[in-house]
Design a protein around this nucleic acid. Sequence first.
DNA 1: CTGTATCCGACACGATACTG
DNA 2: CAGTATCGTGTCGGATACAG
Lengths: 114, 114
Amino acid sequence: MFDPACPSRLSPVRIGDKWGGLVLLCLEDGPRRFSELRVPLARVAPKVLTETLRALERDGLITRTIVGGSPPGVSYAVTPLGRTMFGFIAACREWAAEHLPAVLEARSAYETRL
Amino acid sequence: MFDPACPSRLSPVRIGDKWGGLVLLCLEDGPRRFSELRVPLARVAPKVLTETLRALERDGLITRTIVGGSPPGVSYAVTPLGRTMFGFIAACREWAAEHLPAVLEARSAYETRL
DNA sequence: CTGTATCCGACACGATACTG
DNA sequence: CAGTATCGTGTCGGATACAG
């Protein structure tokens, strides 16, 4: 547990980074193409989005498939393994909804106490 | 949700960083002093441990109380708010226990595919 | 004992421009 | 359309030494 090399330290896989979880959520309702992801994630530089997608693909959480046709493009989809993260992400959001106000309050109280 | 300023983006509060969650776990069974934390967290530089503890305190997840007596010292304890994170952390560990092997397999498969 | 001071390297994130 | 190339920035984590 306390060994930094312990794989369990990777628990929040792709959640620890800034956009991984959000990208997964964007794919929850079905496959999306690169440009479709850029709509909700407009603030993400293309380079960063690419890096995030590569990392998710590398970890087997999403697939990347080239699509012929017109217009040609690339489609990203969540794998079954990736879907197992959704429960986890939901837990994140529930915790936030329930307790984040208290955290923010503690934070501002801490500031004024300085 | 997609606004970077949205507070829900802070969901993995103090989990996103490297040691926050682990420090909380160290306090699960009761208060600990600074030096006691340094035993399991021997690899953490004192500066980093201090930063982590300050951040947790700032967010209202732990308390820091000065203890007179002998030896004098400081005691850290989880607050009720901090305890609400344990379910969340447990979910992390369960996910890892169940699915991490698949991630590692995908990762090595990805490497060899290059 | 409980930190703080200082310095450093690595890396994540980002803006912009360009390409097959 | 789907990226890559390049460059820049800031923050995080860490080692070491020192102080109240």
